[in-house]
Simulated assay, not measured.
Amino acid sequence: MEILLEELYKTDLYVDKFHDRKVFIDEHSYQINGVSKSGKTTLLKNYLLSLKKSTYLYIDCSDIRIDVTQLNHLLPSFCMQNKIETLVFDNYTPKFKFVNVSQLLLSSEVHYDIDVLEHIRLYPLDYEEFLAYEHKYDSSALNHFVQLGGFAFMHTLHNDQRNLYLQRVLLFTLDEMEFDIIKLCAKFMSQKLSAFTIYERLKLSRKISKDKLYKSFSELVNKGYIHTLSKYQHTRATKKIYLCDTSIKSALSVEKNFARLFENMIFLELLKSKNELFYEEGIDFYLPKKDEIILCKPFVDERRLFKKLESIEAFIFSYGIRKITVVSMNKETSISHPLASVDIIPFDIWALGD
């Protein structure tokens, strides 16, 4: 292990064309969590490249050459002898023991309760971050975002490679049960779906344990591969399911439904805004602290929109809704309503607005 430690210490790190993210690392110690390919390793390496090379040690915990017991024994003295100030455990697992250094950085899919570390949740690219990869900031950028989603690696692949590559990433990262669950979630993206319904469907084609399925479903939520949205003031009602990135839909399902994909896009932007968020019958998203409703209408028709508003008027009145935002693909206008302001806003303007 001494030889491997020396090799890791001397190896030059490399980052190809780093684009700034909305989160960043400074001199504090951090735990960075996010799904596979969300950019955790790139964020870590880019930060390390800003430091003096002799002051840091980068260890990828998934390196099969590592004997964890030996490494835990040797690492404290190695860090002391080489005056390591910043120690990085990429793809961290609790088998690796911490060392007394000035700065400790961890990355993993799962969040660990470690008081001494500040927390960074890293998601795939949102629309604003995605634009850094685009040559033009016109309507083609939004079309590319719809096609590629938020995984940065998609920009490096040809169209015929993307779905198969993403399938391989998920097959490598998730266990068999988790993969079967996310496949079904891809089919029912932006719809109500419970773990029990998933169990009922999967048991038709394979022998399955309900307890294991529930645990795997919970793991996918904890890791951030799927997100759930509760119904307002109905915690026991079936939650809606969203994917961590819309590209997973096309990689795992042949079914097409642009309206649901568009809703998932909007959900992910709202998720990163950290607003309290719910759904309601006939209402895509309700933000109670902002007295706002958001409707997802990629190709909005004003006559149908008026009928939609009539159908939810009781909710608008009862909860004092002041603002109704209708997110579209390209239409922009305002319409009059006796109870609230109604603005139709294109996705690209809405996503960059806040």
Rank of each mutant, 00 (worst) to 15 (best):
3 I>R: 06
16 D>H: 01
338 P>Y: 14
166 L>S: 07
312 I>F: 02
52 K>Y: 03
138 D>S: 02
257 N>E: 11
77 S>K: 12
270 L>P: 05
70 Q>V: 13
65 R>M: 00
194 S>G: 07
139 S>M: 10
331 K>D: 03
343 D>M: 04
155 H>A: 12
336 S>A: 11
337 H>F: 11
175 D>P: 09
258 F>Y: 10
111 H>A: 07
275 N>Y: 13
142 L>R: 12
159 N>F: 12
131 L>T: 00
72 N>L: 04
83 K>G: 15
57 L>I: 09
27 E>A: 03
292 E>I: 03
220 L>T: 05
189 M>C: 01
160 D>P: 15
332 E>N: 01
34 G>N: 08
270 L>H: 11
7 E>K: 06
86 T>K: 14
261 L>G: 06
318 S>R: 08
93 T>L: 10
135 H>G: 14
83 K>N: 15
221 V>E: 07
126 D>H: 07
41 T>K: 02
276 E>Y: 08
315 F>E: 06
210 K>Q: 05
225 Y>H: 10
303 R>M: 07
243 L>T: 04
22 K>W: 12
167 Q>C: 07
147 Q>M: 03
301 D>T: 07
21 R>W: 05
292 E>N: 14
20 D>R: 06
199 Y>H: 00
68 V>I: 13
331 K>P: 00
75 L>P: 14
230 S>F: 09
134 E>V: 06
65 R>L: 14
52 K>R: 09
268 L>F: 02
165 Y>E: 04
51 L>W: 04
34 G>E: 12
225 Y>T: 07
56 Y>D: 05
319 Y>E: 12
309 L>M: 09
174 L>K: 02
98 F>R: 09
83 K>E: 14
109 E>H: 02
214 Y>D: 12
262 F>W: 14
214 Y>W: 04
233 Q>T: 06
223 K>H: 06
